[in-house]
Design a protein around this nucleic acid. Structure first.
Lengths: 210, 210
DNA sequence: GTCTATATCAAGATAGAC
DNA sequence: GTCTATCTTGATATAGAC
């Protein structure tokens, strides 16, 4: 275990603060509309100083995406270690619930839509891809198990289920509902879980918790 | 009925071509990444000429959004006139199917995400708002009817159902599946309809068509 | 590693001739 | 209304002093 000097700790704390600002701004405005000037102002340092820590705007965003994936992996691995072990579908529901809570907290960066320049940068970032694949692997296993026991529709290819979970993690519906201001966070979460897992028709569980 | 001169017809045709290019570019890259230079190049005229037809980039995008909403209204009104009349849930499923087909054709502009400058412009555009409200009204009625007969989950507030339909119309899942290239357009549509209406759990209709 | 000041460039919009 | 050429701005990124 390497010794970490006080100076290094200060630097790490600063980088953590930078990534937090980036993450919030990504959630708020998206990559294209987020400016490096804003990030610097939000952190409270000069723009040139930012560039000493991160070499580009893309690197800033990638760091935020990587930290989020690390948090997701941590949550998912926590689920895997629970006793008694929740059923596969329950684990999937808890993951979805977690993503909704992150969204409600204003900490879910909007997906690098379509041809964003960020998309290409992420697709070439091994650290990002590594985490994305780890997460997909775990979720993919759970999906397969849930389809085997019938709690997830076996007629859907697993890809669709996985992509849907990722897509719901930054679904605009949540923000529209929240902006309306007419429903509690808990109500929003329950309704989104219902539409995601039981559909608009909703012939699934008539009541219950995730 | 005013007489439309030949010259005016040519102008209208050109504007139609412009809007078509904008629509495709919006679908491909989104508002922020679409440049006016690209639009001009795609249409085959000079940028300054574009500005004789549309006063700003926002006006260009708004025109495309309005035309799309008009097409949606036309489709929806066609459904309302069918004999025999489809059930409310079937009408909703057909609308969703239509939005998937538009996406597959590469003609669905990505929603003005979050704080896009376009969002503010659209929110201040009466022509756009008028169409959006007309569409929402029709769909809202069908949703209420479908909830009354139990074919849409009555425990969901109608807002959630409406927002979900709009959100699925530009859901990234479809493009991810299409980019994968492993499934036919028909398979993609059927799976997306299933996840949207019957959920990932899929306890709804075990087979059938929309 | 932090700052101020600046280089550089891409993109929205316009001038002015035809 | 179409064009070429240009203006202007805002944003990424860097120079260079401390």
């Amino acid at each position: 275990m390497a010794k970490v000097s006080f100076k290094q700790q200060v630097l790490l704390a600063r980088e953590h603060a930078i990534v937090s600002s980036v993450n919030r701004l990504l959630a708020e405005k998206g990559y294209d509309l987020m400016t490096v000037d804003e990030v610097a102002a939000d952190v409270g340092i000069a723009k040139a100083s930012l560039y000493k820590h991160f070499s580009s705007k893309e690197a800033l965003a990638a760091a935020a995406m990587i930290r989020l994936l690390d948090q997701a992996l941590e949550f998912v691995r926590g689920l895997a270690g629970l006793q008694p072990e929740p059923s596969p579908i329950d684990r999937l529901r808890r993951v979805a619930r977690w993503t909704f809570e992150v969204q409600l907290a204003g900490e879910m960066p909007s997906l690098p839509a379509q041809n964003s320049s960020l998309r290409a940068a992420l697709a070439a970032n091994p650290a990002y891809l590594d985490r994305l694949m780890s997460l997909s692997e775990v979720l993919g296993e759970w999906i397969t198990l849930a389809q085997a026991d019938g709690s997830v529709n076996p007629r859907l290819v697993p890809e669709v289920v996985l992509y849907t979970l990722f897509a719901r993690a930054c679904d605009p519906v949540l923000n529209l509902l929240k902006a309306g201001g007419r429903y509690s966070d808990d109500d929003i979460i329950e309704m989104l879980l219902a539409t995601c897992f039981d559909g608009l028709a909703g012939r699934g569980r008539e009541a219950g918790q995730a």
